[in-house]
């Protein structure tokens, strides 16, 4: 999938230019922490409005300051797996997975089976371990059937074994789905056979 980003964003007191382009099934943004990777991901998802520039994903213009285009986040059709998972604390795992309107009960059950979280469906997010939380977040994003999936450091703070397992799940369950993967660990990107973009 083609990604073409050239934006100026404000984060706190800093203004930063971010520009990159790629055209691969899996694109990985790599670079040191605080380098603007997360800002780029948030801007692509429609959660951070750039001061200037343009964002095109899969040939679709999502943002273009000059043309006055700014597609709202809920119409961008991009799934996001956030670093902090962001599960809804007042909803059960089942309701979290089924939050997207496209996710019916049968799809939720099938996805839970695929991700090995079927036994957790009636639990509350605060009772989940770190690895379980990530898997629910991954399933929730996939069940919205997005055109592409954006992942922001999805393995952060997991021990090596759980990180490896989750990376396998991501690679498996997101097959045929374009990925934009943000990480400071180039190894993760290599494991996904990603086109690397340094920021």
């Amino acid at each position: 999938m083609s990604i073409d980003v050239a934006i100026t964003v404000r984060r706190g007191d800093f203004v930063r230019d971010i520009a990159f382009a790629g055209d691969a099934p899996v694109t990985a943004l790599v670079g040191p922490s605080g380098g603007g990777k997360t800002s780029a991901l948030l801007a692509i998802a429609g959660l951070l409005r750039p001061l200037a520039g343009h964002i095109r994903v899969g040939g679709r213009t999502l943002f273009d300051a000059a043309a006055g285009i700014d597609v709202p986040a809920h119409r961008r059709d991009l799934g996001v797996m956030f670093q902090e998972a962001r599960l809804f604390p007042h909803l059960s795992v089942r309701a979290n997975l089924g939050y997207a309107r496209r996710a019916g009960p049968a799809e939720v059950a099938a996805m839970a089976e695929r991700l090995g979280i079927a036994a957790l469906l009636d639990r509350w997010p605060r009772h989940l371990s770190g690895g379980e939380t990530r898997r629910v977040a991954l399933g929730r994003a996939l069940l919205a059937r997005p055109a592409a999936l954006l992942l922001d450091e999805p393995l952060a703070h997991l021990d090596a074994e759980r990180a490896k397992a989750l990376l396998l799940l991501i690679a498996e369950s997101a097959r045929n789905l374009p990925l934009l993967y943000v990480t400071h660990e180039p190894d993760e990107a290599m494991a996904l056979d990603a086109q690397l973009v340094a920021i």
Binding site: A73, H74, Y99, R140
Partner: peptide, 23 residues
């Protein structure tokens, strides 16, 4: 950030308000 997460799942502003913010 939970409202932002709901938006990426396709929820309109009103749905986010009713299902995330309000509860």
């Amino acid at each position: 950030r939970l409202e932002a997460a709901a938006a990426t799942l396709g929820a309109s502003r009103w749905r986010v308000f009713a299902t995330i913010t309000l509860p």
